[in-house]
Structure formats: C-alpha cells, structure tokens
Design a protein around this nucleic acid. Structure first.
Lengths: 338, 338
DNA sequence: GGCGGTTACTTTTGCGCATAAGTTGTACGC
DNA sequence: GCGTACAACTTATGCGCAAAAGTAACCGCC
C-alpha cells in the first residue's frame, strides 16, 4: 500500500501538499499541483490507511451495532429475519454517510462496551440489550447511543430510543376482533416485559374500552425454548374452548400456533381467530394468510441510523421516536356477529 | 481514555515496561512491577487504542464480511433468514478467536475491495459476489479470502470455497420423488447459474438414473421481483397438469408456490407434490410441512470462519469444502405408486 | 579483575496521517 | 522602495502504541 509520504517523494513535494489535495483544502494549493496530485492519486489507486487517519484525528468512522444474543428456539437474535432487515436498513444508511458498521453479538453489555471503547467507535446502536448494567456502563461512555425497541424507562432518560407504537398497534387489532364480534380474546406471549408489555397494554385497553374485563387467565404463556415448546403448545391447545380469538405478540408465535392448531385439526379462522404482530414473510406466506399489525422494519433501521448520524453532527434528537403501525386484514379472523 | 504513556508516568516507569506487562512478556519484567502494573491497569480500566496498535503492528484484527446486495422481492440478501444465520455463525467464531467483524453490503466488488484495503482487513469472507471483476480485484489484494457458496470455477482456482453438496442434495430428493412413483417432475428456479445450476444438475442426474429424459419445458421459471411475481406464478399454475411433482430450488420458492396453489384451490400433496431445499423456518412452520433437503447454515458460517482463521495462521486449506446435506421427509410428497 | 551473560529496566524510533507553525516569493498600495 | 498581505508551499510535531536498540547493575567464573 502506497503512503502519502511515498507519493510526496515521487512527486517531489511535501506530504502536507498531498494531504491538502486529498482533503480538498481549496485555496491552499494551486490548480496545477492539485491536478498533478489528483492524477497521480488515481494512477496509483491511493487508499488512506484508516488506522493512521483515525489515530491522528481521534475518530473512527465506525458505528457499532450491538445485538443481544438470546437463547431460545431461534438461538440468536440475528437469526430472526426481523433483525436481518433491521441491520440492512442501518448498514445502508450509515454507509451512504461514509461510516462503517461493526457488528457485535453478545449478551454482556459490559463486554460490548469494552469492545466499543477499544475501537473508539463514533456511535452506537443498541438492540435489545439495555439492562441496568448496560445503562450504567453506557453512560460512562461518552459517545452518542441510539437504542432500538427499548422499553426501559430508565434508559429513556439517557439515550434516544427508536421504537414502535406497539400499544396503538395491539389496541387497533384487538378492537378489530371486538368489532368482529369477539369477546373472549386471549393474549399469547412469552413474557410481560418490554415490547411484550407494551403490546399487552394496548390489548388490555381495547378490552377495557369495550367493557370487557381482562382476567389473568386470558394470558397464554408460550415457552419458545426448543425443549419446552411442544409442551407449552399442548397446554395452550387444551384451553382453546375458552376463547374465540387469540392476539399473538408476534407473527412468529402466531404462525407457530397455527401450525400446532392445524396439526390438531382445529381450523383457523372457523374454529378460532388468530392475529399476529409484525407482518413479516411468515405472515404473508402462511395459509390462511395472517391478519396482523404491520411495521416497517427497514424504516426502523434507517430511522435509528439517521438519528445517530444527527447526534454525530451535534444536532438534538427527541428522546423517543415512535414509528406508526397499521392493521393488515387477511384471512385469520372470522366475523362472529349474528 | 487513559494511555500507556500516562500510566507509565503515574507509575513512574517507562512505557515499554507497561507495554511488556500488557503483552505478558515474561522474563522481561520483575514480579513486583508486573503486579503493580496489573493492579493499576485494572484500576483505571485500561483499554488499548486499537488504531494505534494496528498502525504500529500493521494488522487490524478485523474480518470483513461482504455481502452482495440484490434487488428482488426480498430486496437485499441480508433480509434472507439464511444470511442472518450465516452471519451469526461467522461472527461467533471470529469473536471467539479475538477478531472483529465488519459488515459490508454492496453489489460492487471493486468498491468492497477499496473498503477492505482502507481498513487493512486481515481477512475476508465473500458471500455471493464473486464475478470476474471480483476475482481480478481480489487477487491483487494479498489477504486471505474465503468464499461462501461460490460456483465460479475461475474463482475456485484462487480462493477456497465453502459450499454445499447441492448436487447430491437435489439428486437425493428427486430420487425420493421417483421412488414414490413420480415421473413427471418439474424443476422450479429463477436462473440457471451458480447454486441453481448445481441443484438443477443433481435433479437432472436423478432423472437420468431413472431413465427419465429431461425436457427444456420441465424447467419452470419463477420471477421473484415484486411486480413480476404474481404473473410468473400464474404462468406456472397454468401448466400444473403436466407434472405430478415440482422440485423447488429453495424453501422460499416452495412455500411461495404452495401459497399460490392453495389460493387457487389446488391441494398439496394430493394434487401435486412439492419439495424444497434449505430446511429453514418456513419449511418447518408451513402446513403441510415441507419435505426438503436440510443444510446446516450456521455450521456453514462456522466452517467458513474456521477456514479463514486457519489461513490467517498460515495453514493450508483445501480449495473446496463441501458440507453434506440430508433429506427431511415431511408432508408434501404423495406416494403415487399403485 | 576483566569479561560474558543475565535481569530489569529506559530511550529512541517509526507506523501513516493531519495539522500547527514556519518559510518563501510576489503583487499591491502608498 | 518599503511594509503588508496573501498564495503556495515546507518543516516539524504529535496521535498511542510496539519494538529495536541502548544502559546499568549485578553475578559468577576462569
């Protein structure tokens, strides 16, 4: 790899002049030399040594994307198509802005922060990993951070979050079920924190608005770890007669459930109505096609990246950005009004 | 961020001593000083500046993962769950070996190589982007390169490829169809290059082995771009009576086709048998569950990363590594033997 | 008691780049 | 014709680290 020094030597000028041309510092270099240098640069296909540049400038042009590793059926968050789409949006946006993306998968926020500080990353996007430890460590680290889909109130005080109007989404789809005559509606999820809590809340509010009281037993718990999945699916299927519809916290669970239902000979939507959330490939390709809440995942990634880039430029950004959702009606809800 | 120099000053010793402790150079430093320094390092939570280190050592500890951007229904390769799983395998492996992963998505090999050389990446994994241009540029770049799923014979001369025994996979599943009495078997794909060619070849060989002659019209072309998809699906569905089974080049296409079939009231496997390739989430969750060829994608990512790490250590690796596949029988093939 | 060898350091150099500070040469105003 | 201003450079410095080269003290040994 050719260096500025070598180029300067060959052109018989100082490194500063070459460097000035590279950085387009007008008025510091004559038209003649500029052209001469530029031609030469092109000829030898000069590529700056980024380590030297970063060292001299104390920046890195790297944006870190940290992803929480998780341990369930889909083992690792990145295997979720959702995540892949998200990363795609982020990568595209930062690349266009001249940044590079370093991907880091771990469940240990402290470890990630160490990594981030060795690389002197300019900014950070955190997905699914903001626990209290994370907040404490991240705060010490003085670079811009944008969170994705974080529901930690504590976290919101410190970083800006790009998320979804989950509550509105489940409110709307639950209301849609109610409008179709359903009153015995379950909610299926694997926990009651974060996203799941927000979606549960929207569902509850819709019930309340229709004068339906929510009972603890309306919450159906799915356990996604491979070894427990089948068992929990069994438990859920045994309680089917109690409900006419189930709001699933995600398309993945909705489709998983529908497969289990079909295996047991129960028909959707004739025997029971099912709705999901996300509107991903699964929802679109399954038959019956899933009625669900649409979110634009790539847009979410783009927004997160844009927000971070703004912070990098020193602009203020709101603490909370909530992207809209909308209802997508397909074929898994039956109208049971008389 | 505290530097070695500052630490040396505070401890009243030279930077070399501190550096020696950091690098565990035994015998160059007394037990006393070693402990003293180590305690101090821990206390101030010293993190090396990687740019300075890389500059001094002329390495980067970065492994680039370059991904070809594509433009069809799923817009971008990374949105394919397959790719996400692959990346997961690679990232985990290199992280455990002390490397970092830089992700780069583009359709321009030349651009990628520029990026790679600015970062002085130690090694590179290329997925789906080895055209002739790519080979030419990559060759000039003297770092280890491992390709994933490349079928370019030219490329194989230069780099090692980690792939699948695709031919064997489709041979086996086509044979399975034949064993179940099928003789009018179509092959569905969107092109006849690379993976698709290898899979097509396995299918053809199985036909041949059973004394069935392949006709050009047995090739069913699907056009995956959003605006053309529905139209091509229509064309395919009109020709259904010509076949009793269809070998699809991927699960995605198999499931897409099955959805289209269900929409038109044709039943799988009663009216027609369908098989796929990959064994991904779609194949497992669809009903009827898809009979397909299984490949271990994560393993593929791990193998690619391991191979690259070996090359980084100066070990020789074979030009071609073919991972095995196996048949997964589910519910989309009907036995039509009398 | 001078010499090789070892231990435990320190001083110095250089990686490639950006940039602050310094040096020419020359046109201009008065 | 002298000071000033400015254009077009060059020289020098430092970013943080690794490592080559240097130093000083000590030990043993023929």
């Amino acid at each position: 790899m050719i260096t500025i020094k070598e180029i300067a030597k060959q052109l018989n000028m100082s490194t500063t002049t070459v460097s000035n041309v590279i950085h387009g510092k007008a008025g510091e270099v004559s038209e003649d030399t500029r052209e001469k240098v530029e031609r030469f640069l092109k000829k030898v296909d000069y590529v700056p040594n980024i380590n030297a540049r970063n060292l001299a400038q104390n920046e890195s042009k790297i944006i870190g994307f940290a992803l929480k590793a998780r341990a369930d059926k889909y083992e690792n968050l990145i295997m979720d198509p959702f995540v892949a789409e998200l990363i795609g949006g982020v990568e595209e946006t930062i690349r266009n802005a001249g940044y590079f993306m370093m991907l880091y998968i771990s469940s240990d926020t402290v470890e990630i922060m160490r990594h981030v500080s060795t690389w002197n990353v300019d900014g950070l996007i955190l997905f699914g990993m903001l626990d209290d430890d994370g907040i404490r460590v991240s705060e010490r680290y003085k670079k811009p951070i944008v969170c994705l889909d974080t529901y930690s109130l504590e976290g919101l005080k410190h970083f800006t979050n790009v998320g979804l109007d989950d509550e509105q989404g489940t409110f709307e789809i639950t209301k849609y079920l109610i409008d179709n005559g359903h009153r015995k509606i379950a909610f299926l999820s694997d926990n009651t924190k974060g996203v799941d809590l927000a979606r549960l809340t929207g569902y509850k509010k819709a019930l309340q608005a229709a004068g339906i009281t929510f009972k603890e037993s309306d919450f159906l718990k799915i356990r996604p770890r491979t070894e427990e999945l089948e068992g929990s699916l069994n438990e859920i299927c045994e309680r089917l007669k109690e409900f006419t519809a189930i709001v699933c916290v995600s398309d993945l669970y909705a489709v998983t459930l529908m497969a289990a239902l079909q295996d047991r000979g129960v028909s959707v939507p004739d025997d029971i109505s099912i709705v999901g959330f996300d509107d991903n490939m699964l929802a679109q390709l399954h038959r019956p096609a899933l009625t669900t809440v649409h979110q634009d995942v790539k847009e979410k990634g783009i927004t997160a990246a844009d927000t971070l880039l703004k912070q990098l430029r020193g602009e203020k950004t709101p603490n909370q950005i909530k992207l809209p959702t909308h209802l997508v009606v397909r074929d898994t809800v039956k109208n049971i009004n008389k």
